[in-house]
Every structure is written in structure tokens, then in C-alpha cells.
Design a protein around this nucleic acid. Sequence first.
DNA 1: GATAAGATGTTA
DNA 2: AACATCTTATCA
Length: 180
Amino acid sequence: MSIIERKFYNRSTLIVARELLGCKLVRNIDGEIIQGIIIETEAYTQEDPACHAFKGKTLRASTLFKKPGISYVYFIYGMYYCFNVVTEPEGRAGAVLIRALQPFGKLNNTNGPGKLCREMKITKELNEADLTRMDSGLWIEKGESLAENNVIVTSRIGIKLAVDYPWRFYIKNNPHVSRK
DNA sequence: GATAAGATGTTA
DNA sequence: AACATCTTATCA
């Protein structure tokens, strides 16, 4: 029930990626609430070759340098959006890609970053939305804390660069993880 | 099961 | 030309 405040995001991207597991992503579309538990994340930082901000402050990547706790939504492969949460202090780039949700209520088919954006109607209109405020229509609430042995850490998916970084986190034995 | 290819538009 | 994806087809 309690919304996560900005200072949570104003930290190392790796820590935020780990701690977002178990939290609840909530969307309000004209009064209709849809929500899911975050069960899979990936971290991307300024010094990371796979990150959009690696080459500097391009138009698209400029969002990654802004204040923590806002969203970064980008369009990919001609058909899908991906939803990230901006981390690190303002001026430093960093984001956590939300890769999969455990559906809540009538939400369905959220086992992948493109699919969950489609299901929750997350589009570029929500880029730079403030996730610490309910009036943005998209926010994140605290969840149950997870035991360390329920978190699996592996390499990231769908990238060519820096494939050896163990920067993907997901909840053990959860059936909604992407790429089973 | 595995692997390959096609859809599709923005980015640099 | 590549891309932080997903679906469908074509093997085995």
C-alpha cells in the first residue's frame, strides 16, 4: 500500500534492481487499476557498454541522467516498448529494466519486457513519468522483502555487449520469468 | 525439444 | 545497420 519514495531510487542501480523484486507495479488507466508483482529485473549503468547512456547524453538517453524515480520508456524492434526505472543521483545515468511481472487480478501475459508493456498499456507517453506519485498513472509500491536464497542472479538477456555481467535478478521458481 | 526467420520503426 | 523482443514456422 505504501508508495516507494525517491530516496529508494537514489542509490546504486545494482541494489535497486535487487530490491525491486517483490515490489508492486501499479497502473491507473482512467480509474481502472491494474497491477503486478515485479519478479525479474536487469541493471544498466553509465559505464556499462550495453546501456543506452554508454555513448553519452544522446537525445534518447538523456532521460537516464535525470532524477531518480522517473520512468524511462523506449521503443524497440519496431513493435514493443520497454519500461525502466531511472536510478542514481541526478546527473548520473542508470536504470533498472523491468522484465517480468507476476500478474495480479485480470492482468495476464507479463513474462517479458515487451509483453508487460503491452498488457499495462505503457507507451512513450509515460516516458519520464514520476513513479513516486500516483497522479502520473504509474507508480511502484513496497512489497514483501525476499530472502537472499530466493533471488537468482545471472547474466542479462537479449544483448550482445557485456554479456558476462551478472546483472539480471529474478525470483526463484517463479513461473512468470521470461525465456523459460 | 531446438533453431531460424519475419514483423516493424527508431536510433545513431 | 543494429536493436535491452516476441511469434510463428520448420525441423527433429
